[in-house]
């Protein structure tokens, strides 16, 4: 029986991201969490087939909700809303690089922070306020850091996959495309 290395490596990436997201505390200077799980989900959406990326997106959202004691579906719904936009990005970008990661994770981190504050309005942060703007700016900076680290990590993990086991269609085979 051959192991599905993509599944194992993606689980490792999600686990590492979850540990990082849990362990790195917020500080007064940077009062937001780095959304490492979202970073991993974005990498797989941009890099992997739709079905696999959808499952991993779901897992990333569920992990964030569960570990953050958030209301059920808070981040899952956000990521599902973002998913079509990421698929659009996938069509625009011809390849996935760290720069794309910085851009995508940074932008989506800002929206995720706003989404969180809007959903958890009891936390005391008004969505349309100067405080929220500062928080969004901090989320953008943190998103850049997360984008670099997670895209490098996931790219590095890809090395352990070994031989690419993609199925090639007959047309691709006849044309010598592997």
């Amino acid at each position: 029986m051959r192991l599905n290395m993509s599944l194992i490596l993606s689980c490792v990436a999600l686990l590492l991201a979850a540990v990082l997201q849990e362990m790195i505390p917020v500080t007064a200077r940077l009062p937001v969490k780095g959304f490492f799980l979202t970073g991993v989900a974005i990498y797989y959406v941009l890099e992997k087939p739709k079905l696999m990326s959808f499952v991993l997106l779901l897992w990333a959202g569920m992990l964030t909700d569960a570990l953050g004691r958030l209301p059920h579906g808070c981040i899952v719904i956000f990521l599902l809303l973002v998913y079509p936009l990421l698929l659009l990005m996938k069509r625009i970008f011809t390849e996935t690089t760290v720069l794309h990661g910085i851009f995508c994770v940074s932008v989506i981190s800002v929206f995720q922070q706003i989404w969180l504050c809007a959903w958890l309005h009891k936390a005391g942060i008004a969505v349309f306020s100067w405080d929220m703007l500062q928080l969004a700016a901090a989320a953008a900076v943190m998103g850049m850091v997360v984008g670099v680290s997670m895209f490098l990590l996931c790219g590095w993990l890809e090395r352990f996959k070994g031989v690419d086991d993609r199925r090639t269609t007959e047309v691709e085979g006849l044309n010598g495309i592997v």
Partner: peptide, 14 residues
Amino acid sequence: ISRGGTVAIWQTLR
């Protein structure tokens, strides 16, 4: 083992 959970919106420790 953790401060603020994965979102740090709630004031929690693990």
